[in-house]
Design a protein around this nucleic acid. Structure first.
Length: 515
RNA sequence: GGUCCGUUCGUCUAACGGUUAGGACUCAAGAUUUUCAUUCUUGCAAUAGGGGUUCGAUUCCCCUACGGACUACCA
């Protein structure tokens, strides 16, 4: 039986989406689209303690910026809450599905696959620290479940009383003893675990009347007809539990295929990439800027000037490759080429340098007109108003030098404003005794040139220098110093022609008097 | 500590038993250039260690080392 490919991205709204999360979403999306399937967004907010306002909206907006459009789960930029033709399994927010999970939790108890546990958190804490003091680890499993206050030990009546009394309780999974659980991961292959090494995980918390991730995720994946689960490596240790849950519910035949993605690692040193690394090393860890409730902001790729296409491309290549030497892929091309077989097993260290390179490549693919439209608002913010064609000429001259549009201003401000200061190191290097006299003569002659074009100047300048026996480098760089203020930029003829005769003469005279 | 996952240039990775171990980023050198860039050329640089299996191991198996995840009434 082949069923329709349906994948889900199921983040928890506990903060902004991390780039590792975006990569997981991307791989899910690519996998589904490649197979003509559906990509579903589901919000796993079963931890009432860690809920962060705005995180859900952030997730939706971040995916939208990346061009990752869910087939299901989102309506008008919000999580779908009411079932309709497009969102048949709504609500897609787990906190709104508690009755569903409750029913299934009860079913497991009824079938004997789960039980009530009445331990107080203080009691559990005490048992943990006691074990720790003996150098052991407390494990809630077959060895204790029948001696603690659980429905396995207590009589049915006693249990009922405790439930009525409103005692603290949870539902725990009754993990079988000494059973070899054989699992398959599409990326990693076969994995085996003995069930005796596992513990009796909590499935339902009475305190907030919500399931834990394990129950909610298995139930929802079944109900939402998910065919493939592609998630982070941190879930690999709980895969055996999820297998056992599918078995307990009798859902083995519809159990999804599982794939666990390796983690994104710090660029330097050891360990997984964290928010701190971004701050420490100065690169964003989030797709978009995020401001927390303390008013602290974290940088975002969007605000740093990355194109979403570049961001997606670089993320795709962190743990996947097409097997060819092509590195630049649009979202469509990624969709076409993606396969889980080519996902790398080991963790990838994030490389900010390569990230910049990707954006540079995408910037180069843009037309000058597009770049001008991006640059115009920057100019406006600097108080510069120039006609489109002028800006286009400026962009044309410097576009090859930039990785981001936000570098443009620093690269060509002198094409819009006369230099405010002059680099004296450049003067030392190129200024000669006769330079003032030479420049004086040039100013006079330039003022009589009618066709002040790049072509004309390219002919005039070298010819004049040669005719007078001046030093090419000394003269040209001195001119550049007065025009630009430092030793950078396109050819002197280019600059003169663009800023025009009047401005050129003004700058040369002004500069000459100062330098 | 226990369970599980992983390990090819500094980094991302290719090579699914036979290659001078390839590409990209970074870095260095050279060429071009009136400057800074761009561009082009070249270079530096890796199979964690030890055992097997095999005519032959980066590739398969085992051990060690190292790294990582998990070990919550968090996801």
């Amino acid at each position: 039986m082949t069923r329709k490919t349906r994948v889900r991205f199921a983040p928890s709204p506990t903060g902004p989406l991390h780039i590792g999360g975006v990569r997981t979403a991307l791989y899910n999306y690519l996998y589904a689209k490649k197979r003509g399937g559906d990509f579903i967004l589901r919000i796993e907010d079963t931890d009432s303690q860690r809920f962060v306002p705005g995180a859900e909206e952030y997730i939706i907006e971040a995916l939208a910026w990346c061009g990752i459009t869910p087939n299901e789960g989102v309506v008008d930029g919000k999580i779908a809450e009411i079932p309709d033709e497009r969102n048949p399994f709504a609500p897609y927010r787990q906190s709104q599905r508690r009755e569903i999970y409750h029913t299934y939790a009860l079913e497991l108890i009824q079938k004997g696959f789960a039980y009530y546990a009445f331990d107080s958190s203080e009691n559990l804490e005490a048992m943990r620290s006691e074990a720790e003091s003996k150098g052991e680890t407390f494990t809630y499993n077959y060895s204790v479940r029948e001696s603690l206050d659980t429905s396995l030990k207590l009589s049915a009546r006693e249990c009922e009383e405790r439930l009525q009394n409103g005692d603290q309780w949870v539902v725990r999974f009754k993990m079988p003893i000494d059973k070899t659980i054989k699992m398959t991961d599409l990326i990693r292959g076969d994995i085996e675990v003995n069930s005796s090494t596992l513990d009796d995980k909590v499935l339902w918390k009475a305190a907030d009347q919500l399931p834990t991730y394990h129950l909610a995720n298995v139930v929802d994946d079944k109900l939402m007809e998910i065919s493939d689960v592609i998630r982070g490596e941190e879930w690999l240790p709980s895969l055996p539990l999820h297998y056992m849950l599918y078995e307990a519910f009798g859902w083995n035949d519809i159990r999804p295929n599982f794939s666990h993605l390796s983690l994104l690692l710090k660029p330097d040193g050891k360990g997984k990439l964290s928010k701190r690394d971004g701050e420490r090393l100065g690169f964003p860890v989030f797709p978009m800027e995020w401001r927390n409730d303390k008013g602290e902001t974290s940088k975002g790729y969007r605000e740093e000037g990355y194109y979403p296409e570049a961001f997606i491309n670089l993320l795709a290549f962190l743990g996947w490759n097409p097997g060819t030497e092509q590195e630049l892929f649009s979202l469509e091309e990624l969709t076409e080429s993606f396969s889980l077989e080519r996902v790398v097993k080991s963790g990838a260290k994030f490389n900010p340098e390569k990230a910049k390179w990707f954006n540079q490549e995408y910037l180069r693919k843009k037309s000058t007109d597009e770049l001008v439209r991006e640059f115009l608002p920057v100019l406006e913010s600097k108080g510069v108003i120039k006609e489109f064609d002028y800006v286009a000429s400026a962009v044309e001259m410097i576009r090859e030098r930039a990785s981001f549009v936000n570098e443009f201003w620093g690269l060509c401000d002198y094409l819009f404003c006369a230099p405010q200061s002059y680099d004296m190191k450049v003067k030392e290097k190129f200024w000669r005794e006769d330079t003032p006299a030479v420049l004086d003569e040039l100013i006079k002659e330039l003022s009589s040139i009618d066709a002040f074009t790049k072509e004309a100047l390219e002919v005039y300048l070298p010819a004049k220098i040669k005719e007078r026996g001046w030093q090419m480098g000394a003269v040209m760089n001195s001119l550049r110093l007065l025009l630009v203020g430092e030793s950078k930029g396109p050819s002197v003829a280019d600059i003169m022609a663009l800023i025009g005769k009047k401005e050129t003469l003004f700058r040369l005279e002004k500069g000459l008097s100062i330098v």
